[in-house]
Design a protein around this nucleic acid. Structure first.
Lengths: 115, 115
DNA sequence: TCGATATTTCAATATTTCATGAAGTATGGA
DNA sequence: TCCATACTTCATGAAATATTGAAATATCGA
């Protein structure tokens, strides 16, 4: 992950349709979603969605896989991981206290558990 | 953190100067950096930097504090935390395996330790 | 009060990004 | 082979964003 990749990824996430798509795919997990399903769920035209999916693909934030006539998309966790690693580079080295609340945010636990 | 905030934050990070500034401030940690120091380190004009700092402020990614004639800026960890929480909402609920590598990325440990 | 320093605000131009209609490509079924 | 389905690509005009010089604001020290 270099700076250009990171800028591309943040730029990809800074547009409403693409942010919605990415979050939908994060929530969909391993199952992913077909382009058509995404278009329907988000109420976006096919060509508009397609253009935005290609931006997300190019940014390394999603992957895809043909499935007959359809194309299925998935959130790319590794891409996101690289992005966050780049953004927070050296924060742990000098300042571990900065990372703790971030890790806390990502730690899986039941909702409402204030531990 | 709502969708508008998240879009604003990602948009803020999708520009080179601002990404550089944010990473510089992450690395600076609690000490932060004065606007002038940032301008010098990144070799950016004062008014250009000022415009970009105000975008980061507005996005909730940095905070500032007057210090005599200068103004000192800090990375806002809480803002970042909210952003990541929004982006990954429900990823843990249904798919804990998605979060693990992300947490791994943020976990503090010596460089080169492959554990 | 006056000048110097540190930063922000303003106005203008240049660049980038966006959604869309129309056209093109790929797959599957009859 | 022919058609329908599922997506993608292209060209375009409209809207948003970036950088800059110039001017304004705030603080400090003499």
């Amino acid at each position: 992950m270099d700076k250009i990749n990171a800028l591309t990824a943040f730029s990809a996430l800074s547009q409403e349709i693409r942010l919605d798509v990415f979050r939908l795919l994060i929530e969909a997990g391993d199952v992913g979603a077909q382009a058509g399903e995404i278009a329907t769920q988000l109420n976006v035209r096919q060509n508009t969605l397609s253009a935005n999916l290609s931006v997300l693909l190019n940014a390394g934030l999603v992957t895809n896989q043909r499935e007959g006539r359809a194309i299925r998309y998935f959130a790319n966790t590794n891409g996101l991981r690289g992005l966050l690693g780049f953004l927070l580079k050296d924060c742990c080295g000098g300042h571990p206290e900065l990372c703790e609340p971030l890790i806390e945010t990502l730690t899986c636990r039941p909702e409402g558990d204030a531990t």
